[in-house]
C-alpha cells in the first residue's frame, strides 16, 4: 500500500502559538479526504506547511507520486513542491487579478514549459510551438471547468464562483497528482456548491488526481470525502469515515463548543 502523502508528527509554532500540534495525516492514491475543524484550528497552517509556505517546526512530510519514489518534501520551496506534483488553491482567492483568465492558467503551466529568456527573445520554432501548445492546453483546461467563455476576461472581473473555479483550473494546469483545496465552497450558494461537488468528483475520476480538502460546508464534506480528519486547537481529535466522525463525541464537543461561544 503506497501513501501518496504522509505527514508524520508535524508541529508548527508561530512564536509562542502552536498552530499545528503533532499532527499525522496520510492519504492513498485516488482518495478524497477532508480536514475539518472550527475556525483557527490550524487547517490552513497545515496546508501551508505541506505546500512549503512554512517549514514546520518539527515532523516529516513525504510524498510518493504514482509510479515514483518516496521522497521528503519538508523544507523545499513552494515552487519545487508544485513541480513535484502538489497543487493548491487558497482560502481567500489569490488569482492574478489583472491578468486574463487564460493567462492565469498559463502561469499554472509554467513548470511544464522550458523556454528561457534567450529562447523568448529569439523565438525560434521550438519556443513558438511551445507557446502555441500552452495556449491550446490552457484553453482545454478552461473548457473542462466551464470557463471557456471567459478566456480573455480579466480574472478580477469574474463572478465569485467562476473565480473559485479558475483557481482550481490554474492548479490543475500544473498537472498535480494531489490537489489541495482550501475551502473551495466558501461563499458559494447551495446550487454552486452542488456543481462544485460534481466537479471535484469528476476531477478525481477522470484526471486521476487525489483530493485533499479543507471545508466548513458539512453537507459537502460528508457526501464527498471518503475519510475525514478533525482538528481542534492545532491537535487532531478524530479520524474516520464521515459516519464515524459525525458520531464522535470529541467532534461534537468541539463543534458544539464553537456554537455555544458563537
Amino acid at each position: 500500500m503506497s501513501l501518496i502523502l504522509d505527514v508524520q508528527d508535524m508541529t508548527m509554532d508561530f512564536g509562542g502559538l502552536r498552530a499545528v500540534n503533532n499532527v499525522s495525516i496520510s492519504m492513498e492514491q485516488n482518495e478524497i479526504i477532508a480536514l475539518i475543524g472550527p475556525n483557527g484550528a490550524g487547517k490552513t497552517t497545515f496546508f501551508n506547511c505541506v505546500t512549503g509556505v512554512y517549514t514546520p517546526t518539527r515532523g516529516g512530510i513525504s510524498i510518493q507520486p504514482p509510479g515514483g519514489d518516496r521522497e521528503s518534501i519538508k523544507g523545499l520551496k513552494p515552487s519545487r513542491i508544485t513541480e513535484k506534483g502538489l497543487a493548491r488553491t487558497f482560502q481567500n482567492i489569490r488569482l492574478f487579478p489583472n491578468m486574463t483568465v487564460i493567462e492565469n492558467v498559463m502561469i499554472g503551466r509554467h513548470t511544464q514549459l522550458k523556454s528561457g529568456v534567450l529562447g523568448a527573445i529569439l523565438r525560434g520554432p521550438r519556443t513558438r510551438a511551445e507557446e502555441r501548445k500552452v495556449l491550446e492546453d490552457s484553453y482545454e483546461i478552461l473548457k473542462k471547468l466551464n470557463l471557456g467563455h471567459h478566456v480573455n476576461d480579466l480574472a478580477r472581473n469574474l463572478p465569485y464562483g467562476a473565480q473559485r473555479r479558475l483557481e482550481i483550473a490554474r492548479a490543475l494546469a500544473t498537472e498535480p497528482f494531489l490537489l489541495l483545496l482550501d475551502e473551495p465552497a466558501a461563499g458559494m450558494n447551495p446550487q454552486e456548491t452542488r456543481t462544485l461537488e460534481a466537479l471535484i468528483r469528476k476531477i478525481r475520476d477522470t484526471e486521476k488526481v487525489s483530493i485533499f480538502l479543507i471545508e466548513h460546508d458539512m453537507s459537502l464534506v460528508m457526501s464527498l470525502s471518503e475519510r475525514i480528519y478533525v482538528m481542534d486547537y492545532g491537535k487532531l481529535i478524530a479520524m474516520g469515515t464521515p459516519q464515524e466522525v459525525k458520531n464522535d463525541p470529541e467532534v461534537i464537543k468541539a463543534y458544539l463548543g464553537e456554537e455555544v461561544s458563537a
Binding site: T51, V53, K77, P78, S79, T82, E83, A87, R88, F90, R94, L95, F96, P97, N98, M99, E103, M106, I107, G108, H110, T111, R170, A171, A173, T174
Partner: peptide, 18 residues
C-alpha cells in the same frame, strides 16, 4: 508572464511553480 504574475501575487505565483 511569470514576472507579471509575481508582481500581481508572489505567493500565488510561487504556488504555481514559479
Amino acid at each position: 508572464r511569470a514576472l507579471v504574475a509575481m508582481g500581481e501575487d508572489d505567493i500565488a505565483a510561487e504556488a504555481m511553480g514559479v
